[in-house]
Computed example of a mutant assay.
Amino acid sequence: MARVAFVTGGTRGIGRAICQRLKADGFHVAAGYSGNEAAAEACARELGIMVVKGNVGVFADCQAAVAKVAAELGPVDVLVNNAGITRDGFFHKMDSEQWSEVIRVNMDSLFNMTRQVIEGMRERGWGRIINISSINGQKGQVGQTNYSAAKAGMIGFSKALALENARKGVTVNCIAPGYIDTEMVTAVPEEVLKGIIGQIPVGRLGRGEEIADMVAFLAGEHAGYVTGSTLSLNGGQYMAG
């Protein structure tokens, strides 16, 4: 029987690439989204997957979304916590909403989503939780104290949860992408983009498909011995020890 995967922020960018790959690998796939109806409709139509609307920063939305997926596709076996936002600004000028919104969507969402599926995974003796962190959660970034804090917290969350669930057949891992050729990155001014690429030893942006390849491995049957890990995919820009 095909396993069920739920990818938050799954209708665009890296999330969509992950959904496409998991679908190709035979998973039943649901993609979460919060507001872009056109992108969600296109994703559902073009990839042939379920899409579910909700705000990952709201516990009740996550509860309802997972219930919908379970009712239509079955219990969630693979959860990819990919949804995230940025509200950049220097910390000495940052207001409380810039901070709180990023923490809610990027960090609180880990509890809100994972809490819905963890008991079922433990009971069934199999599960995969894959959290999409960031290079900036590893090294920090000017103007992103909120984002870097949330993405660093994701790594700690993953390590602790991996320890709690290792004997239950549930693995928990992080992927920390560098700069990927999403719409958000490629939309920056050309000179800025050149500067970014100049800092990447391999000399190019990453591709969403490369992140999806790593997710597919971690989501698979052969990754049961990999847990509590943070896998850096950044072209050599930051080499974590």
Rank of each mutant, 00 (worst) to 15 (best):
M1P: 01
I18C: 07
R21N: 03
A24D: 14
A24W: 00
G26K: 02
G26C: 08
F27T: 07
V29L: 05
V29R: 04
G32I: 06
G32E: 14
G32W: 07
G35F: 08
A38Y: 00
A40I: 01
E41C: 04
I49N: 11
K53N: 10
G54W: 12
G54D: 13
G57R: 07
D61V: 06
C62I: 02
A64V: 12
V66G: 05
A71C: 04
P75Q: 09
V76W: 04
N82V: 00
D88W: 02
D88G: 06
K93W: 09
D95I: 03
D95F: 07
V102R: 08
N112D: 05
N112S: 03
R115Y: 10
R115F: 07
Q116T: 03
V117C: 12
G120F: 02
E123I: 07
R124H: 09
S133R: 02
S133T: 11
S134V: 09
G137W: 01
Q138L: 15
G140R: 05
G140Y: 12
N146C: 05
Y147K: 03
Y147E: 09
S148C: 09
A149M: 12
G153D: 07
L161H: 01
R167Y: 02
V170C: 07
V170Q: 03
V170R: 02
V172N: 04
N173G: 12
P189G: 00
E190M: 05
E190W: 00
E191Q: 13
K194M: 02
P201S: 13
R204N: 13
L205R: 05
L205D: 13
G206P: 00
E210H: 01
G220Q: 07
E221N: 14
A223D: 08
V226K: 00
T227M: 10
L233N: 11
N234D: 14
